[in-house]
Amino acid sequence: VVEAIKDLVQDCNFDCNDDGIQLQAMDNSHVALVSMKLSTGAFSPFRCDRNIALGINLNSLMKVLRAAGNDDILTLKAEDQPDSLNLVFESPGQDRMSEYDIKLMDIDQEHLGIPETEYAATISLPSAEFQRICRDLSALSESVSIEASKDGVKFSCSGDIGNGSVTLRPHTNVEDESKSTSIALTEPVNLTFSLKYLVNFCKASSLSGSVQLCLSNEVPLLVEFKMGAGYLRFYLAPKIGD
């Protein structure tokens, strides 16, 4: 998760309570927002005696996380009114244990109220497919138009060297649900977004085999990666004409 969001947001409050750990942060330009939830089910055990916000610089956190082995068991601990977050990595065979503390910071964060939205179009597709489309089209242009109709979803762009488009049609993979593409639509939508941000969101592709795109005309796009016990959501403000 940290790897997936660290290029978008730098200083974040990890809000801990009985439900788990949540994070909401906007990028510096206020164009994109990250919203993450790791429910208690993601941890074993999880204990939180009182609500607490852990202000963490993600670059610092990454420096420490890189010291962990892929299969290590990670324990995160913070005291009441903490100055630091304690991280312990234990190898699966328990023959190696490393321990780090990283300094916490006070982050005065504006929490945005995200209205409950009934989106006009909800598209599920393999996350690798979405990543490929964003990468391919970003070679041609800074922006992509996403046009959803009952026939399919079309990603198109135009730039100095020419233009390009990718159209996906609904498709069911009976063996692997995450490889299916589905489109639920109440009305057609057509919106334009910055590819730079979408390419950035796709760093979360390794967290989930499928991704959900939720669109309504003239509102921010929601890109959601569902995780076993939580989610990673990205909101992106559209580009709007005159």
Binding site: H30, V31, L33, L112, P115, S143, P220, Y235, A237, I240
Partner: peptide, 14 residues
Amino acid sequence: PPKQATLGSFFKLP
């Protein structure tokens, strides 16, 4: 060309 909107115009600050 279309202009980039910011989230503040869609989401409410508390």
